[in-house]
Design a protein around this nucleic acid. Sequence first.
DNA 1: AACATTTACGTAAATACTGATATAAGGAAC
DNA 2: GTTCCTTATATCAGTATTTACGTAAATGTT
Lengths: 327, 327
Amino acid sequence: MQHKTITELEELALGVLFKRLTDRLYSSIDQVYRDCGVDFQGSWFAPIVSLAAKGSQSITELATDIGLSHPAVTHISKQLLQAGLIQESTDPADGRRRLLSVTALGEQRLRELQPVWDGITETTRDYFSRAGHDVFRVLKDYEQVLDSGDLVGDMLVAVRRQRRAAVEIIAYQPELAQDFYDLNAEWLKKYFFIEARDEQILRDPEQTIIQPGGAILFARFQGRIVGTSALIKIQPGCYEITKMAVTERYQGLGIGRQLLEAVIQHFQQLDGHQLQLETNQKLSAAVALYQAYGFIPIAPPAGEKTYQRADLYMRYQPDQTGVNPSA
Amino acid sequence: MQHKTITELEELALGVLFKRLTDRLYSSIDQVYRDCGVDFQGSWFAPIVSLAAKGSQSITELATDIGLSHPAVTHISKQLLQAGLIQESTDPADGRRRLLSVTALGEQRLRELQPVWDGITETTRDYFSRAGHDVFRVLKDYEQVLDSGDLVGDMLVAVRRQRRAAVEIIAYQPELAQDFYDLNAEWLKKYFFIEARDEQILRDPEQTIIQPGGAILFARFQGRIVGTSALIKIQPGCYEITKMAVTERYQGLGIGRQLLEAVIQHFQQLDGHQLQLETNQKLSAAVALYQAYGFIPIAPPAGEKTYQRADLYMRYQPDQTGVNPSA
DNA sequence: AACATTTACGTAAATACTGATATAAGGAAC
DNA sequence: GTTCCTTATATCAGTATTTACGTAAATGTT
């Protein structure tokens, strides 16, 4: 695997880059305050300017205006009160609210800071023109896109697509016999137990499935075999889906869906006309998946049960469902 | 004073904007890790990717590579060690160094995370194109400008210029008589004491300075009188600079320099041919300023001292100095 | 070799926040 | 007017980070 260095990661390292620039700007501006001999801190800037602009605000109003949590605003306002730059008064109309406003001393300090801020603004503009971009404008545009979209949701969709693209469906090979056993033993032991017929099939899949004209498919994800599904030929043109398993660690990635699609596709290539399966209500995720792909419940077949755990029998009838399987 | 709201502050609020976006990105990406069911944190990203890219690194190397302090890297590496994603070994060539490298499990986790990161990258690119800017490119360009320049230094220069532009030099008005007294009393009391001649001049500047053909100038900064300087006519064409004061709170802003420049200019407008002053070595900042503007020490005048504190007499001879007064 | 300086790293304390929880005031529903 | 829900805020605990400082190994200097 060829790794990339941090700087080569581009968009992925955007957060790191943002953080670096934030730290840099904050410490530079604090340094300027110190060197200018003004008693002021970077964290005071947003609150006091917001208060000066809007007259007087409560803790919560201030917090939403400057984009901090209210405990943070409580903390900073304590410092500003102590420095005498703001004053507090309880709202006569609402005893819970503590109204903050800038004092005369605060106004005076703001006037004193004006040339400092003008200098900082001037330098910032100068650096923007040297960089060839109006960085502020760009960031504001970006923020607006973030506001209008659902970043986390969109990322999750993209991740799901990427993960799906990383899953390969491969055919049976003798080396995979052990995987076939292990994957099925995992869920059988978890929910039920390994019955005699399970043991027979899992121990010798070539004789029990492949030879009679069935198939076994596997899902490979990042080099690992993470899921499987089998198609057993019951009679000519009549098949059964069985031994479908996805290892727990990789469930929720749509691997089961891909296996089912592949198995149905294989059934169609074999020109089968009937496809059924036996399952258990307990396996609700699997049942939901079968339904989404057009399997409908049918009456249990006559005679003795093949598997003790079976309590739901389904048949593939895609035309009668209006369900979109990729939803 | 017309205040601006936070969002109208533009460049000045750049830090605030950066911080907001950083927090947003970090929390979004952590959310994606959680929702994807991977055991991974945003703060692990930079260290493990750097280690994977460079094979093995010491704490300090890693810290400089990812732009964090070494205690931060120590802390994160503890978490990564505990999660089994990295391993440590002491450098055989240097017993102080602890070499960190990615374990097989770590490599496995990196492979698992690849689709997640691909999804994040894809979404980020998508958002960039929606915003109409290659935000990453813009920030990299901006960072490069920051690297090549001296942000704090440049800001301080700009601040000094802004502050200087905010200082006005104004002529004497009767209402300012009290300021003239107070400003001089401040430094006289701090370093020496108010002598009889001081009291006489400060109490009645109009009779003692203005009437005989001299002048008094004041520096006004943000509406406040913060400094003063006087020019006394000793004989026709012969003047003395005296009663130069800048209130302590506003020293270091170049106000003394501006007063001195203004007083010399006034002297030149009066077609004076001789300009001198009396001072004291203790006032080293003032003495340095006088020298920078072309005042050179001269022998004390004969006869009784005008002021007891005087121990240095200077005369204006600008042609003989090669000093640049604005340096 | 003895000593001082530099370097690598850990630990402790400080800082700057967030999230969760508690509390009290206000408002709405019956 | 109770009762219940909502809102405003304080406080506490937790997290992620920095600065400051100490220790030990390595390196340089006399």
